[in-house]
Structure formats: structure tokens, C-alpha cells
């Protein structure tokens, strides 16, 4: 059987079984069966969801949660649209695009409130500034993930010579097939490090420094789901945030939880990488002392900036009012 097909199938089956295996006590009989589609393969990016599940934060709120994973070939928003998942996570920019193209959905929690996406290039290739990417070969994630990158490139008037679609790996960049690739600081950047590229060999262009500091992962559900079961949506968001707080307080336990899923899903990664990811993503999720945003909340100004940016780039034409996009508003999730 062809390898990757197997990989994926096994991962999907395993993930369906995970909640049952992880919950040592059966959920109460009247527990609501809900599913969440996370936008990528199992990794520390989702430690909060795993811990909310493992530590029973969902269950104590009467939620029997199934975690699904997605990727380049299976978009989590598609699951939402198809109705195969109650909740789904994605970048804010992607969500706005979806909403613009007619998917009636709302944000029930903004998980990652800072941009950690970046473009990475080898210094050796002569790239010293963002402008140097003009005419160069650049690989960008496909679909919803591409939005913030396109926003930065077009707002700086940069047109790469050739674009490549970037998927799960950074192999093309490692093979010198492209001069720059997209990367999350917490993930691909460190993958490059673990493939032997030293930090001083690389030059990075964090999107937040190029006018695109827009929030990333958020939890979404269809508008009708929100209207029908607002309490459930709120509970799900709150339990997830509790999971994140627990992850910050117990990083090793969080890593154990992540590594269990990584191993089961046969993701070719390692604990060192997951540790890096957890450490780098947490500051964007749980606000520190000088942060202007609030954990779990999409701030009005961030929303406005994202909408403005995307409209300017012609990526969207319409955007809903802040409150109809993020009906829980400020202060509702903690």
C-alpha cells in the first residue's frame, strides 16, 4: 500500500479513537458530542486542546470532544462547511476570506494573538532585505494559510519570480529548490535548525515586522451553531483556555501529552522540536505583562487592522461587524 495514504488513514483512525483512550472516565451520559478540527497534524500548537481533553476540562463542562486534525490536503474549514466538525481552527486572515466567500461562521475564541509567521531565506543566497525577494523563488503555503504572506508581499510591492506551493515539509527549501520559504517561528524555522541550518545562516522576515501583525489561530464555528448552542461554544472556548493555562504551568506534562499523539500518529518529529514549539507559541496565547491583548479574545483593533489590510490587498471585499464576527466580544472568555 502506498505509504502516505496509509499514514493518513492510520492517523485519522487513531485520532478518532484518541478521546476514548484519553478519557479515563466515561463522559456523563448527557454529554454533548462535539468535534473540533485542528488545522494541522498533531503537535504542540494544539497542546491546550489535548490537555483540556486529557485533564477533563471539556468533560467537566459536559462536552464529549473528538479531536480531528487537518493539513494541506484537508482543510479544517472545509470540515466546518461540510458539517463534519462543530468547531474548527484557522488563521484570522483565512477565516475572513472564508467569511467573505460566504461561509457564515463566527470566531468563538482567538487563541494565538500574535503573528509568528515569517519568511526565511539563506543569507548565502544574497537576500538581505524583503525587497531582495523580488524575482526570487519563494514557496508559500497553499489555501487559507497563504493570506498573511500575500498581504505582506503585495503591500511591499514584491513579486517573487516564481511561487511554489509549500505543504507539510521544508524539503524544497532544504534542496535549494527555493530561495525563501514560509515558516512559523515555532515550527518550520526550528525544523530548518534541526536539519542542520544554523540560526546565523538564516535571515528571517517576521510578518509582524512588515505590517502584518494579525492574530493567527482562532476557534470558529458556524453562525447557526453559535446561535443554537452559545453556552456550549463558550464552554468549549473556556475549557480550551484552561488547557492552555495548564500547559504553561506543566510544560513537561503538556509535552508528554503531545508526544503521545505524535507517536500514535507516526509524525516524524521529536520531543526537542515539540518543546521548542510549545515554548514559542505560549507567549502568543497567554498574555504576558506588557501585552495589549487579552488571552482568548480577538481584540477589536486587531480585527479592524486585519480587515483593513485584507481589503486593501483586495483579498476580501466585505467583512462583518466586529460583534457579528466575534459575538462573545471582549471579556467573555477567560
Amino acid at each position: 500500500m502506498f505509504p502516505f495514504l496509509r499514514t493518513l488513514t492510520a492517523a485519522m483512525i487513531m485520532l478518532l479513537l484518541l478521546p476514548a483512550a484519553a478519557s479515563w472516565a466515561a463522559p456523563p451520559p448527557d454529554a454533548a458530542q462535539v468535534s473540533v478540527s485542528l488545522q494541522w497534524v498533531p503537535q504542540s500548537q494544539f497542546a491546550g486542546y489535548y490537555l483540556a481533553l486529557d485533564k477533563g476540562f471539556y468533560r467537566k463542562r459536559g462536552l464529549d470532544v473528538t479531536v480531528l486534525h487537518s493539513g494541506p490536503e484537508l482543510n479544517s474549514m472545509d470540515r466546518l462547511a461540510e458539517g463534519t466538525a462543530h468547531f474548527a481552527t484557522t488563521f484570522l486572515t483565512s477565516a475572513l476570506q472564508r467569511r467573505n466567500s460566504g461561509l457564515a461562521m463566527v470566531n468563538i475564541a482567538q487563541i494565538v494573538n500574535r503573528s509568528t509567521a515569517m519568511l526565511v531565506a539563506r543569507k548565502k543566497s544574497g537576500i538581505r532585505s524583503l525587497r531582495d525577494l523580488n524575482g526570487r523563488r519563494v514557496s508559500l503555503w497553499a489555501g487559507d494559510f497563504t493570506v498573511p504572506f500575500e498581504a505582506v508581499l503585495s503591500s511591499h510591492g514584491i513579486s517573487p519570480g516564481r511561487r511554489f506551493v509549500q505543504n507539510y515539509s521544508v524539503a524544497l527549501f532544504l534542496h535549494n529548490g527555493v530561495d525563501a520559504c514560509s515558516a512559523m517561528y515555532y515550527n518550520e524555522y526550528h525544523m530548518l535548525y534541526q536539519a542542520g541550518l544554523d540560526e546565523d545562516e538564516l535571515i528571517t522576515f517576521p510578518l509582524e515586522k512588515y505590517g502584518c501583525n494579525v492574530p493567527e489561530d482562532g476557534i470558529y464555528c458556524l453562525e447557526k451553531t453559535w446561535k443554537a448552542t452559545p453556552r456550549r461554544c463558550r464552554d468549549f472556548a473556556e475549557a480550551t483556555m484552561e488547557g492552555w493555562r495548564y500547559a504553561r504551568a506543566h510544560p513537561e506534562e503538556a509535552l508528554d501529552s503531545v508526544m503521545r499523539r505524535v507517536t500514535s500518529a507516526r509524525i516524524p518529529t521529536n520531543r526537542a522540536h515539540m518543546k521548542w514549539m510549545l515554548e514559542k507559541i505560549l507567549p502568543g496565547i497567554l498574555a504576558g505583562p506588557g501585552d495589549a491583548w487579552k488571552a482568548g479574545v480577538l481584540s477589536r483593533s486587531d480585527y479592524a487592522r486585519a480587515v483593513g489590510l485584507m481589503k486593501k490587498q483586495g483579498l476580501i471585499r466585505n467583512a462583518p461587524e466586529y460583534h457579528s464576527f466575534h459575538p462573545m466580544g471582549a471579556g467573555n472568555v477567560q
Binding site: 500500500m1 505509504p3 502516505f4 511554489f164 505543504n167 507539510y168 524539503a171 524544497l172
Partner: peptide
Amino acid sequence: YRYDVWDWYTLPRDLGRPVWSEPYFDEG
């Protein structure tokens, strides 16, 4: 299954030359 997102397909396509993949475990 979307083969067009995996390295075994995309790398030779994008590089325009034969490629040995990174090793992986086949669950089969």
C-alpha cells in the same frame, strides 16, 4: 488522498530532477 501535496510528488516536480526522499515508516 491528495498526492500533490507530498514531497515525493512535489519535490521532483518543483526541482525538475529525480529525488531520493527522506526515509519514512510505511504503516502497511
